[in-house]
Simulated assay, not measured.
Amino acid sequence: MNSTAGGTEYCTVNDQMIPFTYLYYIIFLTGIIGSCVALWAFTRNQKNKKCLNIYLINLLTSDFILTLALPFKIAVDLGIAPWKLKIFHCQFSACLIYVNLYASIIFLAFVSTDRYLEITQSSKLFRIQHVGFAKMMSVVVWGLVLFIMVPNMAIPIKEIKEKPLVTCAEFKQELGLHWHTLTIFLCLAIFMNASAIILISNGLILRRLYKNRNSDDSRNVKQAMFNIGMVTLAYVICFVPYHAVRMPYTFAQTQVITDCALKRHLFIAKESTLLLSVLNLCIDPILYYYLSHSFRQKITEAFKPEKKASVKSTTITTL
């Protein structure tokens, strides 16, 4: 929709956000419940001495913080947020979504790598499965994503006239837009490298399991193959579409693309695919259940209290 203000043509792209807010609200409720259950299960277990559990706890942390940032986006997209809250969202909570989105992607890559090393029992790379290494890499990951994203929060914004509909790019000064563009390139690089690790690791695991499909434990092997296949498919569905449209939309934000109709289509495509990425919040608790023995045990104990003793004495193998 084109409008004119002070003789300057203005293209409104975010006037169709209300349908998205209802879906975000459902994701928020599902995500906060799943994150709280996972947080309860992990905090009840005081012996998280496995490398995998360190990565899963960090993945849970990023999911939980991302979930807490969603109400601000919902309020802004509904059009009920006051002007100062819109500024807060664009300068802080929107950036927080991306900080934790890319932290999640990196930790998913570490989880896939750890699963591959666990299954292959590779002695050459055994040292990187130490808990100390996992903790060190977790600090590096958080430091990396914060280094990339925090300048988007810290670079001063410009004052603009209050209006019902505003995009975050309108608040950015030239330096802010340049750093925003650089951020997109760096995040795409993170995504591509993490995706290669996830797809290769899961592919190698599937190949190894496929060779054992006719073994005595064929039922568990086939179940493991199905689980890994579904996790990989969910990753592709959640994250690939968003990154396919992210760069073209960035060109629209930086005025490389000026056609209003194309801008509107790119904005809707970006919001639709971002919704798919955030949907990963609802999928990760399933990942915790299948990959973490301690998490699965606590959930089993909680929902089957009458079999608590037998559950504790039973060894449940991880995926």
Rank of each mutant, 00 (worst) to 15 (best):
T12F: 02
V13S: 01
V13L: 07
Q16C: 11
Y22I: 10
F28I: 04
T30E: 04
I33M: 13
I33A: 15
G34N: 06
L39G: 13
L39E: 08
R44T: 12
Q46G: 08
K47V: 06
N48T: 06
N48D: 10
C51Y: 02
L52K: 10
L52D: 06
Y55F: 14
I57Y: 02
L60P: 01
F64W: 11
F64H: 03
L68C: 15
I74K: 00
D77W: 15
G79K: 02
A81Y: 01
A81K: 02
K84G: 12
K84I: 07
L85V: 11
H89C: 07
S93M: 07
L96W: 06
L101S: 06
Y102E: 00
Y102F: 14
A109C: 10
S122F: 15
K124P: 01
F126G: 14
Q129L: 14
H130G: 08
G132N: 07
V141Q: 01
W142V: 05
V145R: 01
M153A: 10
M153K: 07
I155H: 15
I155F: 08
I157L: 14
K158I: 13
P164E: 13
L175H: 13
L177G: 11
L177A: 13
W179K: 05
T183R: 09
M192G: 06
A194Q: 01
A194I: 03
I198A: 04
L199T: 11
I200D: 07
N202C: 06
I205R: 08
L206E: 02
D216F: 09
D217N: 12
F226I: 10
G229A: 05
G229T: 03
M230S: 07
T232N: 06
A234R: 05
V236S: 06
P241K: 00
Y242K: 13
A244E: 03
V245K: 04
R246G: 08
P248R: 11
L266Y: 14
L266W: 06
F267C: 09
I268M: 14
E271I: 03
S272G: 11
L279E: 05
N280I: 00
D284N: 15
I286K: 10
L291G: 00
S292C: 09
I299T: 14
T300V: 01
E301R: 12
F303E: 03
K312V: 09
